[in-house]
Design a protein around this nucleic acid. Structure first.
Lengths: 214, 214, 214, 214
DNA sequence: TATGAATGAGGCTTCATTCAT
DNA sequence: TATGAATGAAGCCTCATTCAT
């Protein structure tokens, strides 16, 4: 039930049969990019952290930018969709089928995911802002996978009369998504690393969403 | 009523009586940092855009990083608080005193602000993530000003019985803030530049928050 | 009467008001390029020889290739034509006006020029082979200046009946040019640096050309 | 009668019984060196073009420079001398025994050879200029083979009274050689790839040489 | 014999910063 | 105050060469 990005990436990379050293470079780069940003991380630093010669990085990835993409794209393109599928069915199975339990499960589950892969999301968000084409790719991925599934669930709840039908499901979806992911982003940026118990807060957000949609 | 960051910065910089050239450097740097990020902007580019010798930048700001701070901190430290004060009193005056109108006004007003100063927020968000001490400063600023005022308003609404008293105002505030700013961040990152009319969405978020808090 | 390429370049560079350091870079680079070839000379070597920081090279020339062009093109474009003019009039004035004396003077004069600027011609010839567009530029320059003037002289000698009129002047010119410059090239490549007295040989070539053209 | 360098190299390499892969490396390298120069061709490029692993190159040739020598030296050392022998006897046999026909045949024959092996000569000329010891080797080879045979022919014509005896044969030889090879070099560098008919020009050069030597 | 991953020295270039004018 | 030439550290990347398989 705990689908960390790290695990996903490891899975992915095993599929494509990467060398040990290639793996180490990917891990080191991911960590450093998340910590200090792409532009502030030098290839020599990556090499040192991966305990590899600098040339090795370029033998495997040709370019620093391709290294970045090798960290993000495979994850997004191949791991996100199936992951979401899993998550959604698991969620519905174990948490019951009311809107409350759906959103509570969604938020809790994704929040765990988020927290564990904070680094990778940081890379995503940061490098994201500048590169137009990449932005589009990611956006489409999110919409076609995550948004679509939330929308499906909301439509089902609307049919069962558990959520208001006076507002189109698309708008409800977009709003819910914005609130939930906004909640995560805000936490990603504003939260100290102090382990603040935020269960209260999550419950609060769930209540607000549910009430707002009834 | 239209408080763009740009205007705020201009106001601020006039106060400190900067030279023409210093001004031009600030403007050019702000634009470039927003567009391409701090790390991807060179001082020579800034000099060219400001039509100033490169040395001039360093005469005024000593360091590229101090230049960044000269763009962000003055705005945050001296412009945000009074701005918020204005905004809040204006808001309450012109929009009536129900929770609905308060949040609606808050979101609409801040959204305009956001949209117009998107660039400056981009600088803020991007460079933000990395520099620990800076993060703290900004966080405190936000909490002490914006959060505090929202909290004051909520407490007042609680006293009037228009918002539930069974949840501490601090939690309600934090949740509302998270939802609202999360909403903005999400739009900042995920929205195409197409001018999508989002009035629906704003209204939606207002309703959800209100319902959730009643 | 002694027109070394080196002197020409110095003249040229004074016109364009170059810094001392820029000058030193040009000189060092010219020497090294001639000695070891463009591809085998590193910018750090140039910097060391010019006693300049490596960055200085790029401040002035942006690119290693632009540095190469800054050595060759100015010389070719601005120094060659007037130079040739001088040379030709001087030659005709001081050597008398028979075909023999003309060719003898031409070869001797140009051979001196060649010997002293051997380095620069080496750069020219070597880098020449690869870069198509550059090749064209140089070729046109040579044809429009040197060839044209030889052709003028030959036509005059034909009119005076001192050279056969049964062959078009263009063919005679091309042949003479090919022989003369071929003679130089061959010496450039095949000659040891031992100072072989080649006056005999020059006289030989003059005789052969003259006899062949009578 | 048509002795292209390519054919010669193929012959040579067959003699020394090289592996298929070694062969392929030699061919690929020769092509690339001619096209882009030694310094601008990477061993990985050669490996790719030869469809061989990069390590294979070094197994066979140890060093990139030894690879270059493996292309040029065998040709020069073992193919040039017998080739010249053939050429000269063929020439004298089929073109008759006057100085005119000798030089005409020599130039035409060698010009064809030149044209077809332009690439290989480009390698020779280019890499040549820099490496002192190599230069000597090649120079000696040329002198001991080509020059010697021309000298022999000239001496014979002098004995028959068909060429002036007032000039030592060595000087005549050197001059003729310089003119002929200079003619080729000049064409190699200055000629566009347009197929200019140069028969006129060749005839012209022959006449000039002959007249000059009578 | 053949491979190709790994290496690390060295290449070109950028850039924040200094300083003499 | 303003300039811009000069600096040199550091960045990304290429490449000949080695070596375990």
């Amino acid at each position: 039930m705990n689908h960390s990005l790290m695990e996903e990436i490891v899975k992915y990379s095993k599929k494509t049969k990467t060398t040990d050293k290639k793996q180490r470079v990917l891990q080191a780069a991911a960590q450093l990019f998340a910590e200090k940003g792409y532009a502030n991380t030098s290839t020599s630093e990556i090499a040192k952290k991966a305990d590899v010669a600098e040339g090795t990085i370029f033998r495997h990835f040709q370019t620093k930018e391709k290294l970045l993409r090798s960290i993000l794209l495979p994850f997004l393109k191949e791991s996100l969709p199936p992951l979401s599928e899993d998550v959604f069915s698991e969620m519905l199975a174990s948490y019951g089928d009311s809107p409350e339990s759906f959103f509570r499960a969604l938020i809790k589950n994704r929040y765990e995911f988020f927290k564990e892969s904070k680094e990778y999301f940081q890379i995503l968000v940061k490098e994201f802002v500048y590169t137009e084409p990449f932005q589009q790719e990611v956006k489409v991925l999110f919409e076609q996978n995550v948004l679509k599934r939330i929308n499906d669930a909301i439509k089902r709840f609307q049919e069962k009369g558990e959520i208001t039908q006076s507002i189109p499901s698309e708008i409800l979806t977009r709003t819910a998504f914005t609130i939930i992911f906004g909640f995560f982003f805000t936490h990603m940026f504003l939260q100290n690393n102090e382990d603040t118990p935020i269960d209260n807060e999550i419950e609060q957000v769930v209540q607000i969403i549910i009430n707002g949609m009834k």
